[in-house]
Amino acid sequence: MEKTPNAPRALILSTRVYQALLAVYPSEFRQAYGSPMLQVFRDCCQQALRESGAAGLLSLWSRTMLDTVQTAFEQHTQRGVEMSKEKFYKLSGWALMFGGLAVMLGWLAGTRPEYNRFSAFSQPIDRYANALEFPLIVMGLLLLSVGFTGLYLRYGQAAGSFGRLSLGLGALSGVVSAVGAIGLGIKDSNPWWSMFFFGMTFQYLGLTLFGVANLRLRVLPRWNGLPIFAGFWVPLFVVVSIIIEQVRGGWAEWPEAVFMTLWLLSLAGLAGLGYLLQSDAQTMDTAVAAV
């Protein structure tokens, strides 16, 4: 702060004390606004001295002290929340990537025949595949729900009520599906199967519907078609299969290569979304530091 040649001692002292007092704010806030705050305070001091002398300055100081304590606390709290949010966005970015991978690997493990040491068709890897199928699927579904929660928190506000509702549906359905998968692992029964199957369908449907809202409002920083690309095929497959079942009277058998291709496409979409969330969290890091 420049010293005005004829500035009263009280003014110089006050600005110096206030400059020292600014240390109570978080460093990012101080770097961004410390200088204009000091300038405004100096202007206020000049006005108070001009209008009411020492009494005015004392009154200004009492108000400023209260203001400083209150707003410094607010800024520290806000900073803490922002830091936690950024960490969660990064974490949920990873959750989308690894969730998609785990679900795909779980499905792949499920394609292996039941291990039988006396069968010529069984391979040693089948023993591990059988054991890992449900844990991988449960982990994948839950990770995807964490990822959807990250998308909800980061883009939900801009995505509007329809987008938020879709992501909420997706996140919740993932948990329902995971519970169904756990139930299936314990006892192979229809209710558990329906819970798992339709839970997963609604999880991906939620992502697809968020993608529709996203195409309209363009809330992602880029690649706005990704949520639809990652999610659409699961609900589409279910609808097509149900139609075929109604027409033919039996569940349609699809080649494994078709599934593999679709899972891979979905994984690519989810990995892209995860990458977006992470890079956006890093952008926020920089923005928060700059603000």
Partner: peptide
């Protein structure tokens, strides 16, 4: 309403964001 510098720039930061 007499705003202090902290309230003023805290609000400005929030409104910029």
């Amino acid at each position: 309403v007499k705003m202090g510098p902290g309230t003023l720039y805290g609000s400005i930061k929030r409104m910029l964001a």
